[in-house]
Design a protein around this nucleic acid. Structure first.
Lengths: 253, 253
DNA sequence: CGTTGAGTTGACTCCTATCAAGAAATGTGG
DNA sequence: CCACATTTCTTGATAGGAGTCAACTCAACG
């Protein structure tokens, strides 16, 4: 018992950062022995090149994945061949949870740039979870977060205008970068206009036009993939009729 | 040990149907003692009248709810007062899982008709889950299902036309009714045109027009809230450009 | 039997998709 | 390292789908 005491938050952060599982273990007090066990089941794959697949829709579900560095998009394929983006996954974010129920992945996952991921065999994670109540709680939280994320996106796609969608998208990216320790106002988009459009239910031309429009309004400075947010409040204002998103996107300091 | 043997599927079905937790325990082999334990933490509230709230957005998260009979809608409120429906919940379906992560419900839940629900205190469910691996697995599956459901709705709202949305909605209802033992072709809508529109990101007038349009096409027979599907294949055909939804909506017999 | 809310239908407008062409960046092979 | 091909992005013109506004019908209810 003595050697299993709760480790300090700092030590935990380091341990979790190296294993890429900050999302799973950061916010709680996993005991040091537990972290080792968790660490023991994680596969560290070699980096994926741009365009490489992590899994494809219909593949048997075995693992969940955590992005360490880079960006991954998840997407489905329409019968006509066009693809529909369902999510962008930044460092620290998890993919593949939707595949568990059907035992098959419901979408494909592809690296948008050179990307490193952790592969977590779900079966083993589940076994481990049985013996570590805290880990179970984290898993529930993780899945709950995924559910509420999807729900607010549904709300966004349901009613709002093109302008509101892109504003929400940029604020979401900004907030996520901020929480990973990157700049919240200055970043590079790893996805194309096409992919942003697909994700937001817009034509790529509309996305492009909106970027120039936001630039004219002095809200953004855009140069191709590089975006600088000049007027953060201006972006928030665009979402003022929007319900749920606001609290989640506003950066709490 | 001897008295804890796996009960027959039939007994299980009965036990779960009475407790309204078929979603949680039906597809697995919970041991009889476990079912009793699960049963022990469930609160059986008296029926809710039409319009009564189960919980409201922002309330502290304590319970998840399973619909026994009736229909519940979950919705968020926009700043301008209008509401945005995020889901309709039929018997056997679960609500509230999205609230866990934030410790507060991210939406409100209101009965659309006289409705009975089971209230499951999440804290106790979680404790119980620790000691029953099968139950943990079921919980993961349940949450995974919620995630993939939301994802396919996102896809639907992202790209598709009003016609496709309503078709998908009707097929979803049809399939869900079918799997609960009701008719898949003849049912009553418990929600208004307004609410359907809000859910699908359409104006109520558009929904109304589509119902008459579908009727003209001999796909439906509509009379106010009563719907009869005359040409199921016709509805599927409308979704033929749609990706993920199809397998999920098609009734597997 | 009048009131109220839900649903239907029509006319009009506007947002955004689509089509099309050109510009800018990226990649490739000699 | 340059020329060419390819992809991505931008910008313009046009058209169509769905929202909005408005009037009317119908059912439910006291």
């Amino acid at each position: 018992m003595a050697q299993n005491k709760v480790v300090s938050i700092e030590k935990l952060k380091i341990a979790c950062k190296t294993c890429g599982l900050s999302t799973l273990c950061l916010p709680l007090g996993l005991e040091s022995g537990d972290i080792e066990k968790l660490d023991g089941i994680i596969e560290r794959n070699r980096p994926l090149r741009k365009g490489a697949h992590l899994f494809e829709m219909g593949d048997d579900f075995h693992n969940i994945y955590v992005v360490k560095t880079g960006t991954v998009k998840t997407y489905t394929q329409n019968p006509d061949g066009t693809e529909q983006v369902v999510g962008f996954h930044l460092p620290g974010e998890v993919m593949g949870l939707g595949g568990l129920e059907q035992k098959r992945y419901g979408c494909s996952a592809k690296a948008l740039q050179t990307t490193a991921v952790c592969e977590v065999p779900f079966k083993q994670l589940e076994d481990l979870t049985t013996s570590i109540p805290n880990l179970q709680h984290q898993m529930f939280r993780l899945m709950s977060k995924e559910i509420s994320r999807d729900t607010s996106l549904m709300v966004l796609l349901g009613k709002s205008t093109a302008e509101e969608r892109l504003a929400a998208f940029l604020l979401s990216l900004s907030s996520r970068f901020y929480h990973r320790g990157f700049s919240s106002t200055d970043f590079n988009l790893s996805m194309s206009r096409q992919e942003i459009g697909s994700y937001l239910g817009l034509a790529l031309e509309t996305v492009s036009r909106l970027f120039t429009h936001f630039q004219e309004e002095k809200i953004l400075l855009v140069n191709r993939k590089h975006v600088e947010i000049l007027n953060m409040d201006g972006l928030y204002d665009l979402l003022s009729n929007q319900s749920s998103c606001l609290e989640k996107l506003r950066i709490q300091s």
